[in-house]
Simulated assay, not measured.
Amino acid sequence: MNFASIDFETANEKRFSPCAIGVVVANENEILDEFYSLINPLMEFTSFNTYIHGITESDVSDAPTFPQVWPTLYNYLSQNTVVAHNASFDMSVLRQTLDYFNLTYPNMDYLCTANISKRVWPDLINHKLNTLASHHGIRFEHHHALEDARVAAKILMTALAAYQAGSMDFFLEKCQMTKGRIYEHGYVPPRSKPVRRKRKLYF
């Protein structure tokens, strides 16, 4: 049951400005592979984004561009289930950057570990990545693409263990969730079916 966890950092508010990518390949038991690269977005950085992730224009001056990194990323993502925390952001970065550079889309499904954590651990105060990491005793450097991807992978691994799921389909069935999917110039988001709550009886 292999999956790939990803995280992007961007240079500015444009979704097609990735400046770092982290990928972690894992299964229900262990991390199998990791990949990290800075990316030269070929555009300016904003001070706000640099404040968040600490990456500057000088840091990426000799880094590969997204089209140069894409063949490696494509091999990680295509024909795989891909997860990300707040996946709507990372999938938007991926889609808009592929469109911007006119690159081939991967054939991939995706899931959001933020939504999964809401279903598996509904009583947490919130479901931010750092809150979940603290709850599960995971120490990491927030807003570093590889470390964020690694935490998202560990969150899914922990959720699979909590549901004693031997397959992703079984896990999603128990969670009442469906995978999302991206395709050229479009996407279908993951869905969470409403959970029926037991009515309280008053006498």
Rank of each mutant, 00 (worst) to 15 (best):
P190S: 09
F170R: 06
L156H: 05
V60L: 08
K14S: 02
K179E: 13
L94A: 04
A159S: 07
Q164R: 09
Y36P: 03
S17P: 05
T178Q: 12
K128L: 14
A159E: 05
G166K: 01
A133M: 10
M177A: 08
I125C: 10
A26C: 12
M168W: 01
Y36T: 04
N40Y: 11
F170V: 05
C112W: 04
T131P: 13
V24D: 11
A11K: 12
R199S: 15
S17I: 05
N29L: 12
M1S: 13
L201M: 13
S61M: 13
P190N: 07
N12E: 09
F101W: 14
N86A: 12
G22W: 00
H136E: 10
R197L: 05
L124I: 12
K128M: 14
I55R: 13
A26L: 15
Y105A: 09
A145W: 00
M168F: 04
S192D: 09
A152T: 02
E57N: 12
H85G: 06
S78L: 02
Q68A: 14
D109N: 05
A84L: 00
V93T: 03
I138R: 01
N102E: 15
I39C: 14
C19A: 07
H85R: 10
H142V: 12
F203K: 11
Y36E: 00
S78F: 00
F8H: 02
Y100R: 15
H185P: 08
L124K: 04
E9A: 09
D62G: 07
A161K: 06
R196H: 05
W70P: 10
S58G: 13
S58A: 14
I31V: 05
D90S: 01
R181F: 05
I55G: 11
S92C: 03
T65W: 07
H136W: 11
N49P: 08
D90W: 00
F3D: 00
K154M: 05
N49H: 07
W121N: 04
S92N: 01
L124T: 08
N115G: 15
A63V: 04
L160F: 05
Y105W: 11
S58N: 15
E9G: 03
T10S: 12
I31C: 03
A63C: 06
Q164M: 10
N49A: 09
Y74I: 09
G54L: 14
Q79L: 02
T178G: 13
I6S: 02
I155N: 03
A63S: 04
D62H: 07
N2Y: 08
A11V: 14
K14Q: 01
N86E: 04
E44F: 04
R196V: 02
E147Y: 02
K174W: 09
A114M: 08
E9D: 10
L111Y: 00
V23D: 01
K118M: 10
S134T: 11
P122D: 13
E44C: 06
S167V: 01
E34L: 01
R95F: 06
S58Q: 15
V83G: 03
Y100T: 09
T81Q: 04
L160Q: 01
E30R: 08
A152P: 13
F140W: 06
I182R: 00
H53Y: 13
K193Y: 10
A152G: 13
L77F: 04
T131C: 13
F170M: 08
V195S: 00
A149N: 05
T97Q: 06
V151C: 13
A4F: 10
N86P: 10
R139Q: 10
D7W: 04
Y74G: 10
L38K: 09
K174V: 08
V151W: 14
